[in-house]
């Protein structure tokens, strides 16, 4: 039982990161119907910005993290305005190609600047692990879980309890309707790209002290983000969070109780299984089209 609880705790901590990434992918997807295949590299970029600001500019970590999130927010606005808007009239596949290309440009840039080196990311707090019975609770688990939980509370509060949230929901439901009531949909799309990339950056900043920092950091998380989205249901904000947490726990349990070789492919197995058994995921809506 101790082992099961330990695996679950560790899985929830990892899952919190996956949840954040899945949620950031979903925010962009719900707003623009674009799946950002380069999102993993934006996650990596956020972490690298913190690294640069802490190591080279010598900013305190918290300021560096806030600055990096803001930089990524700006980058999201820029990506939407500079690279997505101009190809809006083209085929949808163009968005996928564009997002993949932008991701690889970022990854290539990081490789060019830092090579394939693996960097230790400065830690914010060095909290000693403590025990609850035989259960080991580490500072990383506490820190990540707390930050993600607070962030999700704020995010869902804004989404469901504020006027801004109501406007966002209105655009999600009908862009044409939102336009008619005076919402600037183009600016909305740009902001959602900004919010999506900023959230991705936050995930990168939280995980990099654990995973170490390197240019290929984001690739692993992208597929996990997709798996969490699939499990929770494409387009479902709450589903993305639940999907991420379940994926984190599933990876740990698969790795321990079945085979450690399966741990790395848990995300893929989940994608396949969900698409075959319940394509809408746990919280997705099945769309019925009358013809």
């Amino acid at each position: 039982m101790d082992i099961f609880l330990q695996l679950t705790l560790s899985g929830l901590s990892q899952g919190a990161i996956f949840a954040l990434i899945a949620l950031s992918l979903t925010v962009v997807y719900r707003a623009t119907t674009i799946v950002n295949f380069g999102h993993g590299d934006f996650v990596m970029a956020g972490a690298f910005f913190v690294y640069v600001l802490v190591i080279y500019v010598e900013l305190p970590y918290v300021f560096a993290a806030i600055s990096a999130v803001l930089i990524m927010l700006g980058m999201g606005l820029g990506v939407s305005r500079g690279f997505i808007d101009p190809i809006k009239a083209g085929p949808h596949i163009g968005f996928a190609m564009m997002s993949i290309s932008l991701g690889y440009v970022l990854r290539g840039g990081a490789r060019f600047l830092w090579g394939r080196e693996v960097f230790p990311m400065p830690r914010v707090f060095d909290i000693e692990p403590f025990f609850i019975g035989n259960l080991v609770v580490t500072g990383d688990v506490l820190f990540i879980s707390a930050i993600v939980a607070v962030f999700l509370l704020i995010f869902f509060f804004i989404f469901y309890r504020t006027t801004t949230g109501v406007i966002i929901q209105a655009v999600y439901q009908s862009e044409r309707g939102a336009t008619l009531i005076g919402v600037n949909v183009r600016a909305f799309h740009q902001s959602m790209w900004g919010v999506g990339l900023a959230m991705g950056a936050l995930a990168g900043i939280l995980i990099a002290p654990i995973s170490l920092l390197h240019p290929d950091l984001g690739a692993t998380f992208l597929i996990r983000g997709f798996a969490a989205m699939t499990l929770g249901g494409f387009g479902s904000l709450g589903g993305a969070v639940v999907g991420g947490l379940l994926l984190g726990v599933a990876e740990q349990l698969f790795g321990f109780y079945i085979n450690s070789s399966l741990q790395d492919i848990t995300a893929y197995l989940i994608i396949v299984a969900v698409l075959v058994i319940r394509p809408a995921g746990l919280f997705g809506r099945t769309v019925t089209v009358r013809v």
Partner: peptide, 8 residues
Amino acid sequence: GQTDATAQ
């Protein structure tokens, strides 16, 4: 690319 080795 794995970031956690708890199970192992």
